[in-house]
């Protein structure tokens, strides 16, 4: 199908884009358009005005400093997937973003768009929660910083005002050589994940796990941190019993049943994905390579 008529505004400044949003209740931001255009073609949604921010090139780009990684909202998923500088400090991004849609959609799709669409099965919101990212949103009163936990307010509902635009995502990199793993299960290549598991691990010199983050996507209405699973691993050396306990505790997360299967099925898939991601993250030969 085709979208119903709408007005199109190509914003040439961020200020113009925000002002258009402020004055039009029914306006939507057009970033990469890889979800929005599909929903408009299917007439699930019909905004009266589209504010295209693709010309705001200042919103695209990745910058890395020892304390902070900053990814502009209009950075294409393909640029994130192939960024050498990002791969050096946060190799999980390339691994996970490679699974986002297909090459053609990654060429257009953006990190800001994916975060605002907030599909629970999407890879980028899962990574954002994994890294405890700070989301920068800019409105009529300038930019403000939102903790990702406050940004994810519910199913496909980002915590920003109608006249705010997500302008960047920031996070602190983990220490060089950290372990990482990302696995997901989807019925078809590039399809939305039935379950995904993202894992980061830092070890002390004696190999004890000092810091761990686990985020599960696809299983519930929003991506979820697997806090009790993290607790099962911290202070251990990632032995079989600790991994088994973290996997067992997946039962404590929220699950949503759909046409793919019931909650039991999703739990089972989630456990398998977590087991695989933990195996990767605990594999020190792999993390060693990432540090090089």
């Amino acid at each position: 199908m085709k979208p119903p008529p709408f007005e199109y505004v190509r914003a040439s400044t961020l200020k113009e884009a925000i002002s258009t949003l402020s004055h039009n209740e029914d306006a939507r931001i057009l970033a990469g358009g890889q979800s929005l255009m599909a929903m408009m073609n299917l007439r699930y949604i019909f905004p009266s005005i589209l504010v295209d921010i693709n010309e705001l090139h200042e919103l695209a780009g990745i910058s890395v400093s020892p304390e902070r990684v900053r990814i502009g909202a209009m950075t294409r998923q393909r640029a994130i997937e192939t960024s050498q500088t990002l791969a050096e400090v946060a190799p999980i991004f390339a691994e996970a973003v490679h699974l986002v849609g297909h090459r053609q959609t990654r060429n257009r799709g953006t990190i800001g768009g994916s975060l605002c669409h907030l599909d629970p099965a999407a890879e980028l919101p899962t990574l954002a929660l994994l890294y405890d990212c700070t989301i920068e949103a800019t409105g009529p009163n300038g930019p403000r910083r939102i903790a990702v936990a406050d940004f994810i307010t519910g199913y496909m509902t980002p915590g920003i005002a109608p006249d705010e635009i997500v302008t960047a995502v920031e996070f602190g990199p983990w220490k060089p050589g950290h372990g990482y793993g990302f696995h997901e299960f989807a019925r078809r290549h590039g399809d939305f994940a039935i379950a995904s598991a993202a894992v980061l691990i830092e070890r002390a010199a004696d190999r004890t796990i000092e810091r761990v983050a686990i985020c599960m996507g696809g299983v519930g209405s929003v991506p979820q941190r697997h806090v009790s699973g993290e607790a099962a691993l911290i202070g251990t050396k990632g032995d079989v019993a600790a991994v088994a306990l973290a996997v067992e505790r997946c039962a404590q997360l929220d699950y949503v049943a759909d046409f793919h299967g019931g909650e039991e099925y999703r739990l089972s898939v989630a456990r398998t994905m977590l087991r695989r991601s933990l195996a990767d993250a605990l594999d020190e030969t792999r993390s060693g390579k990432a540090a090089a």
């Binding site: 599909a38 295209d52 053609q104 257009r108």
Partner: peptide, 19 residues
């Protein structure tokens, strides 16, 4: 509907002509 725009393949149905 895949076409190449400025060197990158895109879905022609998910991009507006005005873009």
């Amino acid at each position: 509907c895949t076409v190449i725009v400025d060197g990158a393949s895109v879905r022609g149905c998910l991009m507006l002509a005005v873009q």
